[in-house]
Design a binder for these strands. Structure first.
Lengths: 241, 241
DNA sequence: CAGTGGTCTAGACCACTGC
DNA sequence: CAGTGGTCTAGACCACTGA
């Protein structure tokens, strides 16, 4: 575990301690952390200082406050890449969960690129999943997912029905691994023959590639994923200041 | 001007008042706003409340604090789209300002799409600028820029040298208009014949289109811009939680 | 050195939640 | 109603900046 730097302000040290407890799963996502008064008492600081520490955790997205109820460990809600990056409108605001079709799933020795990204020993075992996502029966996203086998072995034994359409809840339910944040890199590349075939597009037509590295609360990489979709339906919005 | 809602918490009302003063240019970007003690005195609230109001403004990117010096109106620094979205590395961390070549500049009656985006009367006069941006002499970005003529007429009278490579500082210097924030929408489209020609690419090859709507501190749209670059060099990174 | 923002405290009262 | 987080105050002291 990381040591707490003694020179830091009180509220920062307190933030680090609470964050560390969340990382080691002292409270699960959705659970309430102790009240501000309790934290102030146990850490022998003023309530204002506790509030400032929690302010930081809220800004970082680790916890959520709810007036009158308490402060809760946040379960990050990763909107499907489909709706964040592609023009498949949610039906009148409702989010439709796209259908998932797992095409292949196997354990193998990890390619160098993958073991490096996942920060596991070179050549160690990893799991690779090929998955196709469909909306109204039409293929819209082809995904290639890599996991360190040491932490995710149970995934290989599940039936496709047990895995279900969403992977992150399954990771949590079956492997006890919670995704806290992710880094995504977008590029545009021509689709190769097999991917284009899956997406029912002409080979070589432009595709958007979303490379995602997902991290747990402890900061270790959990999953590396590459999703490809048709560039024609890509749209992404940002605000800058 | 927007009225201040009486039911809001003190620190929110204070925030709104300071934001309104920034919007009407009571202090210019880079200038210091009054000290926390002064604000507390003039508004007859505790310093803690002032600090909370300023916390919000900092989070919104309107001001920046500097310990021991003061709190300053922030001048948003829009990194060139080139380096935010395309793989043209800055040389050892330094930002190179790309060369700008203005190809055309004229006033005309605004197309419906443009007047709607700029929130000016249908058919009113606008300025259109075609600009090519180059790095080491190679064209990398083709831009089409639209401005409401009522606010930006002086731009038409400048020589290209007077305009310089960066437009936003010129808007501020010549027209007194400061860009506070912007919304950008990314899409991928085949490049049309003239754009591809400008970028020295085959027509129809995939391009990334960045549609940007820039706003002033008062929230009114100032500029609408569409930049096109080669999709092959596109790369964008995000972190999600 | 005076003046600025940054940290921390202690306590009062308000507004919302759920029993 | 008790218990939670949200607002607000008043004041002490610290750390940094620039003259």
């Amino acid at each position: 575990m990381k040591p707490i730097d003694e020179r830091l302000p009180l509220y920062q040290k307190l933030r680090d301690q609470i964050a560390a407890q969340i990382a080691r799963n002292a409270w699960h996502p959705g659970e309430a952390i102790p009240t501000e008064a309790e934290l102030a008492a146990t850490h022998k600081v003023a309530v204002g200082t506790v509030r400032k520490a929690i302010d930081v955790l809220v800004a970082e997205g680790l916890v959520e406050r709810s007036q009158g109820r308490g402060t809760f460990v946040r379960r990050p809600n990763f909107d499907s890449s489909l709706f964040r990056f592609f023009r498949y409108q949610k039906e009148n605001g409702m989010r439709r969960v796209p259908e998932s079709r797992i095409l292949q799933r196997e354990g193998l020795a990890g390619p160098a690129e993958v073991t490096a990204a996942l920060d596991v020993p070179k050549g160690s075992k990893v799991i690779r999943i090929f998955r196709l996502r469909l909306l109204d029966g039409s293929p819209v996203l082809a995904e290639e997912i890599w996991l360190p086998k040491a932490r995710f072995a149970p995934i290989l034994k599940l039936t496709p029905e047990e895995i279900g359409p969403l992977l992150y809840p399954t990771y949590e339910r079956v492997c006890g691994e919670v995704v806290a944040r992710a880094e995504e890199t977008l590029t545009v590349e021509p689709l190769d023959q097999p991917t284009a075939r899956l997406l029912a597009l002409p080979p070589g037509s432009p595709g958007v590639v979303i490379a995602r590295l997902a991290f747990g609360y402890d900061g270790r990489p959990l999953e590396w994923r590459r999703s490809r979709g048709p560039a024609a339906t890509f749209r992404y919005q940002i605000e800058i200041r």
